[in-house]
Amino acid sequence: MIRRHLRRSAFFVLVAGLFAWLVFPLYYAFVTSLRSGSAIFRVSWLPDGADFSNYVRVFTEQPFGRNLLNSFLVATAVVAISLLLGVTAAFALGRVKFRGRGTLLVSILAVSMFPQVAVLSGLFEVIRTLRLYDNLIGLVLAYTLFTLPFTVWVLTTFMRDLPQEIEEAAILDGATPWQLVTRVFLPLLGPALVTTGLLAFIVAWNEFLFALTFTLSDRQRTVPVAIALISGGSQHELPWGNIMAACVVVTVPLIVLVLIFQRRLVAGLTAGAVKG
């Protein structure tokens, strides 16, 4: 009896410890963001007062609102393009038998795995040739490198698992392949589209290396770059209050999104990985 009790309490101590490990950094960023002036330099484990001046400064000392809008626009465009190209490609790869299909799937998977830095100089040249340097459209183009392969991959596995019967009737009625995709498959793919779209959004929202390299001016930056480049009077005087406020601002919408679509996201993550 006592042993069972002990084991139960040990388990809950473990759970509490793991929980704290997961959420403490975000909690502490929030606590810090509400303190300013010299208060920041006294360590405080608990929130004391609510001073929102850091939040005001984040938006007034740099075009942070603009940066948020940039991130939002880029991520949305990336999602739209990836889903549009992904659905049609997934129909071809998941529902039609043709020579070279397996090779194609493996190559697409390989693209999602190679290091971004390996395409950095080549992509820089492409973007400059297309006159898209320091332009959000250039970033949208660059981000399809990450989002398109896994969108195609996940949607293909979803498409492949749908039963044969659903399209047979439509084919007998003389439906064209385009009609098959838009009328028969698209409605069935709803949940998969939400999942892959969200994953693509998060990837684009969080990306740093390309955003840092392919944009130059303050007003074209996305949020991760803006946060990384927030600096104070000197190198050793980083405005930590502002930085933490900015961190909270970018993270909260993501967390809300993730918690709402929790189940779908987990399903998509494990499908994307376990199945390839």
């Binding site: 950094p25 969080n206 961190c247 999104l257 993730v258 987990v266």
Partner: peptide
């Protein structure tokens, strides 16, 4: 809670 670190942008985790 498990999804919190995963969803936070890498740059943000680096700063935090």
């Amino acid at each position: 809670a498990l999804l919190v670190p995963w969803a936070i942008p890498t740059v943000v985790s680096a700063k935090m």
